[in-house]
Nucleic acid binder design. Structure first.
Lengths: 341, 341
DNA sequence: ATTGTATTGTTTACCCATACAATAAGCTAT
DNA sequence: ATAGCTTATTGTATGGGTAAACAATACAAT
């Protein structure tokens, strides 16, 4: 079934040429005559040598063609998140075109040390749960790029979250409305809860902060005040957490008539809860989402939300990484005004 | 920001011990005294040596802690498929527990040659589009395991698709019903179409064949005949392809009153089309799915389907791979009788 | 004092290939 | 024929580390 793998040396011996020549035949066509090169490749094919050992190449060349995608959370969580998996889609498309491979790296891992020596670069999607991880990545000399968050020293790809949140809130909120916000990762709590006076987590540039700022700016302009009692914290964009928050909002007194949600998943859960409880949307309750996932278009009523192209984000991020771009990229977004307003 | 990376040799020189000792301090605690080991590790920490270079370790040890997950299709497609991404969830959970890393590998790639030298093993999820790929993997001496398909020479993880299909069909089909089947990857066509007399693709053990066999057995037992005109081919479990097939079925004459779908995605598209067209489910149309995805529980009416735990499948596959299990694993399934029957 | 046995640390060969300098061969111009 | 220049090929140092064989030391038992 399997003979012990041939090495470059074996082959060189067998063909009576130097190892350098075999290596050149595979890697640097300009270093030898075309005739000999073809001859060598043909012979290799015949004896079953499929090319230089990749592990050795990684060591010698210092390049593996592997790009690590560092996710905000666990892999398990990420692949089931429609926004994140769409992002991966974009990334993988570009990587495949460029002959690169994709290593998924959980953002709650202890350290990147066990891959940093061989991966060609890092794409960091969303602030890793483990802050140390982000720090480690900055320290490295490997190319790296961040998406949906910023960290001093690395280029980033993002939309203007503050502006996007402002614009959608602007569409949703009317003077005199009673507004609640269902936020993502606002405070340091593993469970869904109202924010109250808890200190906000994450840097000021985190997307949640930016979105919150945008929401508040829009409300403020309409003369609507939002007390932190009416801001909910949801630990991750998970349906169950979202559902719990949704129920709390709907059962709170007085019930808000407008709810700004920091993700479509959250908004859809809220929508479903509201319908189940017999509320009329948008008459009794206006809802906005964020992201523009496909599912949000299929619901009845369909969701009003901020659409950003996660696929494009992935493509841009991967391209920028491979090109070693140093500048931040600001992507566009657009509002989708659906039937929940 | 970054000093040139320290090597084991540098450190050995600096600490005045041999490289082997430093290596042992990191890898084989039993090879030196605890005191010295701690001293060395402390010193390393102090001078900023974080441990042996992983690229070199991969070459020398012949092990990388990277497992390649070879997907049936492109990565882009796979991550957006609920079944596949749930599977990844299971795989990644186990790998992370074991300190392994996950490399996503597209099943339509040209070859595995560019990773085979360094990955520790392969998990093949669904028959790769590129048949050569599967062949290559069998040829390797690396551990490998297949999921949702079989290939001579590799252990597999699967459910009894024939029996599962038989049982759900058995619940759905009554004597005198007019039954259609919406099948997945049955023939060699890139578009949705009726099967007619086209030759079936894939081996006899492919899940689609097994499911088809199960459906037909159940129908046959009820005295229901299904002509191949009433079997549709859908090239992949994609919503658009599914929708197209759904429409064709609903507009065909005479319209079937029972449709057996080889995936929940297909079934849900059919359900939505049917409702949109004003049909009553299940009065006018009975529908069965396959897989048991979450979304199928949330629809109204919710779907009758075969539930298999993709997470578990992933866990089992990863575990079996790491344990180098050689036996096939047959997982259980269960019927969920929802409101579409 | 001598031998035997653990324990600890070092030497050395090896993992597999690539980059670069050096050599050899072929050719032109004088 | 010789110097000078290309082009094709090879020798060798290097990438960073590990495993197995080996040497050295410490200590107990004889």
């Amino acid at each position: 079934m399997k003979k012990d793998k041939l090495t470059l040396k074996d082959v060189a011996l067998r063909l009576g040429v130097s190892t350098a020549t075999i290596s050149n035949a595979f890697n640097r066509p300009d270093q030898l005559s075309a005739a000999r090169r073809e001859d060598i490749l043909a012979q290799c094919e015949k004896i079953g040598y499929t090319g230089p050992n990749k592990a050795a190449q990684i060591l010698r060349k210092g390049r593996s063609n592997i790009v690590a995608l560092v996710l905000a959370d666990s892999i398990a969580y990420t692949v089931s998140d429609p926004v994140a998996s769409t992002f991966i889609k974009g990334v993988s498309k570009v990587l495949q075109q460029q002959g690169k491979h994709l290593l998924l790296y959980a953002g709650d891992s202890a350290s990147i040390l066990d891959v940093v020596d061989f991966v060609d670069g890092f794409i960091c999607y969303g602030a890793p749960k483990n802050h140390k991880l982000a720090q480690e990545i900055v320290q490295q000399s490997k190319p790296a790029i961040t998406v949906d968050f910023n960290i001093e020293g690395l280029p980033s790809v993002n939309i203007d979250n503050e502006q996007a949140a402002y614009e959608i809130a602007n569409q949703a909120v009317k003077g005199g409305d009673h507004v609640a916000i269902l936020g993502l990762r606002l405070i340091d709590s593993p469970t869904t809860c109202r924010v109250y006076d808890s200190p906000l987590i994450g840097s000021d540039s985190s997307i949640s902060h930016r979105r919150l700022d945008g929401y508040l700016r829009a409300c403020s302009e309409k003369g609507v005040n939002i007390d932190s009692d009416w801001i909910w914290h949801i630990p991750e964009s998970d349906r169950n957490f979202a559902k719990q928050a949704a129920k709390e909002v709907l059962h709170s007194h007085p019930r808000p008539n407008t709810v700004l949600c920091m993700s479509d998943i959250i908004a859809l859960e809220l929508l479903q809860c509201a319908l189940t409880e017999g509320l009329e949307v948008p008459q009794d309750l206006k809802i906005t989402g964020f992201d523009g996932i496909e599912e949000a278009e299929r619901t009845r009523p369909n969701l009003s939300t901020v659409c950003q192209s996660s696929v494009q984000k992935g493509e841009i991020a991967a391209t920028a990484l491979l090109d070693a771009t140093q500048d931040d990229t600001l992507l566009s977004f657009e509002l989708k005004l659906g039937e929940t307003l």
